[in-house]
Simulated scan of single mutants.
Amino acid sequence: MSTITDQLLQQLSSGGLSQISQQIGADESSTGSALAMAMPLLTSALANNSAKPDGAQALHQALANDHDGSILSNLPAFLNNPQAANGAGILGHVLGSQQPAVAQGLAQNSNLNSGQMGQILEIAAPLLMGALGQQQQSQGLNPSGLAALLGGQQQAAQQSNPSMMSTLNQLLDQNNSGSALDEIFGFLRRLFGGSR
């Protein structure tokens, strides 16, 4: 199964990765590896949140209102000015006060510093939301269909790279409760259910 992460990395391979690398001041290999970690982490967070009916409904609404996938139709324009897509705002809601710790943790597992990893997360978040919005539209997904899609994506990521997903789960599990993504449900609910 081709994951949304795979599809996005494929789309970025024709010039996009080079643009991102230049923006963050890193080589393409390190940038690609960092994106390959950041996207499944964000996907897993969304999958866990949408496993609850109210979370799925709120995400469905946010995608319908603000993330129709058009960002992927003109990647060069987005990558020239990624700040315009408000990736920082999305992450602020999704990760909240954990954002620095997540960036730091991801950086420790890559060749990038935490500042560069923070930039990667800010670029990855709007891309992922755009890809989900595109899937929602093309497949005519309702909230439960969207939840099922995300669950499948999470499972595929787990199967294709269990060691990386284990690392990501540990990274998000700030209180060692063993249920990593519980930590960010509140932040996700603020993003998809609260004021925007």
Rank of each mutant, 00 (worst) to 15 (best):
Q108F: 07
Q174C: 08
Q155P: 05
L132S: 06
Q158T: 10
Q104S: 11
F192V: 11
L128E: 06
G193Y: 02
I71M: 10
A156T: 13
Q104N: 09
A62L: 14
A85K: 06
A45D: 07
F78A: 11
L79H: 03
Q19G: 09
M165N: 06
Q154M: 14
N161W: 13
V102Q: 04
S18F: 02
R189Y: 14
A103E: 03
G92Q: 03
I123N: 05
A124V: 05
P100C: 02
G140M: 00
H93L: 02
A131Q: 13
G186K: 00
S97L: 00
V102P: 05
G87T: 03
A180F: 06
H67L: 12
S166Q: 15
G118E: 03
A85H: 05
G69S: 06
L91Q: 01
A148T: 15
R196E: 04
G133K: 00
L12C: 09
R189K: 14
M129Q: 07
L59G: 10
P53Y: 12
T31F: 03
N111T: 01
T3R: 07
G152C: 05
S18R: 09
G89K: 02
Q10P: 05
S33D: 02
I184R: 03
R189V: 13
S29F: 00
A38H: 03
P76C: 02
A103H: 02
A148M: 15
N142K: 14
Q137K: 06
A148Y: 15
G140P: 00
Q136F: 10
D54G: 14
S144N: 11
G32S: 03
G16S: 07
G133P: 07
A157P: 13
Q19D: 11
E183D: 13
